[in-house]
């Protein structure tokens, strides 16, 4: 007898239960499954999100891993599909496949200082880590969030960042690349925050997400501070079409970003990172 093989390309239908404009080009959807079931994921994983008649794109999950009744996606409108998605409202339906990919080392980070560095929309895939770490605060040493964005208007999750900053058991710093005189915060690239952050390099787990160049510079700063290469993680990005290892698009050297990533340990990808056009 020939076994039935499930069709992994079929999406599960979710309804937008909340649509929030985050910044001028970024928005967040809360999605609830139409089948009433649950959705579980690990921090750092992503979904393939399909809009009827428009297309399908990979989007990291930006919500709380403890909340199993909904999915949160924070999306930046930069391409055709994301620009169409921005127009969707509460009640509209999306197709979801996932969760896919590797996750951030929140378990391995137990007993460590946790240094999270995010750039731009890169804060979205790291927000589940912050939720997890704060929900299990006693398991971690110092918790540091360093966030860089282009301008003050591009800062994601501003209210939440303020809440995290107000806690006594976190160290939160935000910086922007450019600002007018009205901005009271830091100006300068996010890497400049690392040398001043208070963590013990010998027992720090670093997690980095943002544009590839920003990640490369950030990792250098961590190494300069003495963080071990096998305790630095970063989330990579390549074109993804199927997310299950069949389409070949997301290959990066020997890796399929969709299943061997998107989260990689730095020492395993160092050589690849230094190769151009891979």
């Amino acid at each position: 007898m020939i076994a039935e093989v499930p069709n992994v390309t079929l999406p599960r239908l979710f309804q937008i239960s909340r649509a929030v404009k985050e910044t001028h080009d970024t928005f967040t959807f809360e999605l609830k499954p139409l089948d009433g079931g649950e959705f579980t994921f690990k921090p750092g994983q992503f979904n393939m999100v399909y809009q009827f008649g428009v297309g399908e794109i990979p989007v990291s999950i930006s919500g709380d891993p403890l909340k199993k009744t909904s999915i949160i996606h924070t999306i930046r409108a930069v391409g055709g599909v994301t620009k169409a998605m921005r127009k969707l409202k509460k009640g509209d339906v999306l197709g979801i496949r996932g969760p896919y990919g590797t996750d951030w080392p929140v378990l391995r980070a137990s007993g460590h200082d946790v240094a999270i560095v995010a750039g731009g929309i890169g804060l979205a895939p790291l927000r589940p880590v912050i939720y997890h770490v704060l929900a299990n605060r006693e398991k971690y040493g110092k918790v540091i969030l360093l966030y860089g964005s282009r301008t003050p208007l591009d800062i994601l999750f501003m209210k939440e960042i303020e809440k995290w900053r107000a806690r006594l058991d976190t160290e939160v710093a935000v910086t922007v690349d450019r600002a007018s005189g009205a901005w009271r915060g830091n100006v300068g690239v996010v890497t400049t925050l690392i040398s001043k952050a208070h963590f013990d390099p010998a027992k720090t787990m670093a997690m980095v997400c943002g544009p590839e160049i920003m990640m490369r510079f950030t990792v250098q700063e961590f190494i300069t501070r003495g963080v071990l290469k096998d305790k630095i993680y970063m989330s990579m990005e390549r074109n993804m079409k199927c997310a299950v290892g069949f389409c070949g698009h997301c290959q990066w050297g020997s890796n399929f970003i969709c299943k061997d990533g998107p989260v990689f340990r730095y020492d395993t990808i160092h050589d690849l990172l230094m190769q151009r056009e891979m």
Binding site: Y50, G53, V54, E56, K241, C242, C247, G248, H249
Partner: peptide, 30 residues
């Protein structure tokens, strides 16, 4: 290697998901 294509008819009421052979020699592949 393949590409995933989502197509719709003119009415916009009917959509299909296709998979077609692709090649790493095209610029848009990556």
């Amino acid at each position: 290697c393949t590409n995933v294509e989502d197509v719709t008819d003119l009415s916009g009421d009917h959509a299909e998901r296709w998979r077609k052979w692709d090649s790493c020699f095209t610029v848009r592949f990556s």
